[in-house]
Amino acid sequence: MNAVETQHLGKRYRRSWALRDCTLAIPAGRVAALVGPNGAGKSTLLQLVVGLTRATSGRLALFGSLVPGSVQALPEVGFVAQGASLYPHLSVEDTMRLARSLNDRWDDAYARARLAAIDIPPGRKVGHLSGGQQSQVALTLALARRPRLLILDEPVSQLDPLARHEFMAVLMSAVAEDGISVLLSSHAVAELQRHCDYLVVLGQGRVQMAGDIDRLLAGHRVFTGPVDEADAVAEVFPVVGDRRAGRQATLLLRSDDTKAPPPGWRSQQTNVEELVLAYLRAPGASVLPGPVRHQDDERRTTA
Rank of each mutant, 00 (worst) to 15 (best):
I180K: 00
K11S: 06
Y110F: 15
P27T: 03
P37W: 03
A285H: 08
D94G: 09
L162R: 14
P161Q: 08
P155H: 07
L66E: 01
Y279H: 14
D160R: 11
L34K: 03
D231N: 12
A190C: 13
Q7I: 11
G211E: 02
V189I: 15
L141F: 03
L52I: 11
A278P: 04
S173P: 05
S173W: 09
Q193E: 14
A218C: 12
G36E: 00
D160N: 11
R59M: 13
V222K: 04
R281F: 07
L129H: 09
A84S: 13
E154L: 11
V292H: 08
L252N: 01
S43V: 02
V189A: 03
I180S: 00
T23E: 04
E93L: 14
P27H: 06
P289C: 06
L152P: 01
E191K: 10
Q158E: 14
F63I: 02
S255N: 07
V200F: 03
R215Y: 09
A138Q: 05
Y279M: 05
S286N: 05
K11A: 12
N103C: 13
F237W: 15
G127Q: 09
I120F: 06
V227P: 01
L48M: 08
S135A: 15
E177N: 12
V272D: 00
T56L: 07
Q136C: 12
G203A: 12
L183N: 00
V292R: 10
P263C: 11
R254G: 05
E274S: 07
K42W: 01
R30G: 01
